[in-house]
Design a binder for these strands. Structure first.
Lengths: 337, 337
DNA sequence: ATGAAAGCGCTAACAA
DNA sequence: TTGTTAGCGCTTTCAT
């Protein structure tokens, strides 16, 4: 690996000049610039970005911590963030927390130890209190898909209350009145918010949320299968189900299948997320879409802006709206189709 | 941010001693160590890992370039690599190529510019020739899920020939003789290898590969849907289909559904990959499993070993075997179940 | 427009 | 066991 010093020797100039020729071309004479270019070429010189970072105190690197990379949910957000950052010459260091609080804590710290200018955190395990403490302690952090009122301007999030309301509104508009729901774990604010919006919207239609038709899941398919079985075996009838994740909808569909129930003829189902899975289920799943890629990209840009103390933080969209994607899993009771 | 110099002053020792106390505790007196610990605590000192890297010429960072992070295929491998590396104190810098050859080239280079000790590449767009050139030029690189005979010991891969053979064997064992297949793009070695193994295995059973029943897809569902429609509308009959990815199987299933064909009663389908999608399809998809997480982990470990010029490169499993996961999409013609 | 020199935060000989 | 002195590869004053 050639160093700047070797380039300087070869070009017959000082290292400072090489540095300038490369980074501030307007500050150097055309002739010198040519000599430098030439030397750079022949040596195949490439600046050591770590050394550049140390000297200039800017690593042009953003960190991100998520539970895991293997799921479409996290993968899509990371993809959005990475692409957005790459466009502005930034790199992403990704670390997974292993779905544990301790993992989140250490990943967060460790990314700063690597001189990330800012870190994007998708916290799942940290209690709100501790999370607030971290946001306070590490001002160069932004929360992805999470809303912490105290740190409003460092959060990129989906309006989950509205997302839940959208699901209810869709089902009600299709004529459903007896509606069951399988939520995420209540320790997740997303789950609570979606349920809250769902309940409020039902209330507006004069439908009380029925506790007997409300089950707490964990966003995964297996548990949703169990919950749905229990719901189906219970005494209460219902014509529609809202699942707070597409994966849970998949589990619920499986339960229906085993009970010989047809979707949407016997029971309608609406999911949440709109990951690829949704359109591969049968029937194709009507769901509430989260713009995950956009959320990831916004988190990347916000992290960059925060790191640079850029004034246009305000210009970055931080609150996203869900949207229902209508497919084939909800029956219209009004028309019967 | 406290620096090592401040710690040194506070502890009344030299920076060298602080460095030793932290990195080679056995080399320093217990009393001094205590003083240092104390200073570290009170200042909240954390070593700047970038500076450490520059000084010690080891960044403890591995890079990885993939097409994108959003799909389960890449996500799962990255997850495997990241976890394996985290365990040994290494970090992963991830960069996506944007599914273009130029993206792969620049990502590869740029990760080395960031002083990654080694980089893991999942190449999709680079021609074999150029890929070979890069492996030659960058000895600290390993290929993930790709086999380049010239660089045997820097590749972690699935035996795709055997994978294809497994699919054929399964179908033949179930009594199928008229078998169609939708492959990946032939520009991908995976696609060619799987087809080769598939053809060889069929040949062993005395079944020639029928060109009219062989269609080239692109691993995606949409194109598989088109191909399957064409196959179904064609003059040749067949009882089974092998798709080289689960996503394509999903597309093919959709085509069957639109034609009113039942799976597996009218037509059997076997996929490849065994991503989450497979068990969510209906019927649940019988498929050839790739151990993606293990492959990713092995790639991470191999990259580390290569970077460290470790002798136990040989000890890392580099060749993985596929395995068929039997679910419900293949009918046994022998028993009719 | 260019060079000399200092320094980013740390490690690693070499002495003592 | 500890301190001194050089760097690692670069950027950035400050002179010239």
């Amino acid at each position: 690996m050639a160093t700047i010093a070797q380039v300087a020797v070869k070009a017959g100039v000082s290292t400072a000049t090489v540095s300038r020729a490369l980074n501030k071309p307007e500050m150097v004479d055309a002739k010198t610039k040519a000599k430098v270019q030439e030397a750079v070429q022949s040596l195949g010189y490439r600046p050591n970005q770590v050394a550049q970072g140390l000297a200039s105190r800017s690593s042009r690197t953003i960190g991100v911590v998520v539970n895991q990379f293997g799921s479409a949910y996290y993968g899509t957000m990371i993809d959005g963030a990475e692409r957005a950052l790459r466009k502005i010459g930034y790199k992403l260091i990704a670390e997974s927390s292993g779905e544990a609080a301790e993992g989140e804590r250490s990943a967060w710290q460790s990314l700063f130890d690597r001189q990330c200018e800012a870190v994007i955190v998708h916290s799942d395990a940290l209690a709100e209190e501790e999370l607030t403490g971290f946001m306070e302690k590490h001002p160069m952090s932004v929360l992805m898909n999470r809303h912490l009122p105290d740190y409003e301007d460092r959060c990129v999030y989906l309006d989950n209350i509205r997302g839940g309301a959208l699901a209810a509104a869709h089902l009600v508009a299709k004529g459903h009145r007896k509606i069951a729901t399988i939520t995420g774990p209540f320790s997740y604010h997303e789950a609570r918010d979606r349920l809250k919006g769902f309940e409020q919207q039902l209330a507006e239609a004069g439908i009380p949320l029925d506790p007997d038709l409300t089950a707490e899941g964990n966003f995964k398919d297996d548990m949703a299968f169990e919950r749905m079985m229990a719901l189906l075996n219970g005494p209460k009838e219902f014509t529609a189900l809202f699942c707070q994740s597409d994966e849970m909808a998949a589990g619920a569909i499986e339960a229906c299948r085993q009970k010989g129930l047809r979707i949407p003829d016997d029971i309608s189902i609406i999911g949440f997320d709109d990951v690829d899975l949704a359109r591969h289920l049968s029937p194709k799943l009507t769901t509430v879409r989260q713009p995950l890629r956009e959320i990831g990209a916004a988190a990347g840009l916000l992290a960059h802006a925060v790191a640079r103390k850029s004034p246009d933080i305000e210009g970055i969209c931080r609150s996203f709206e869900a949207e229902v994607i209508e497919r084939a899993s909800v029956l219209d009771l009004n028309t019967g189709s």
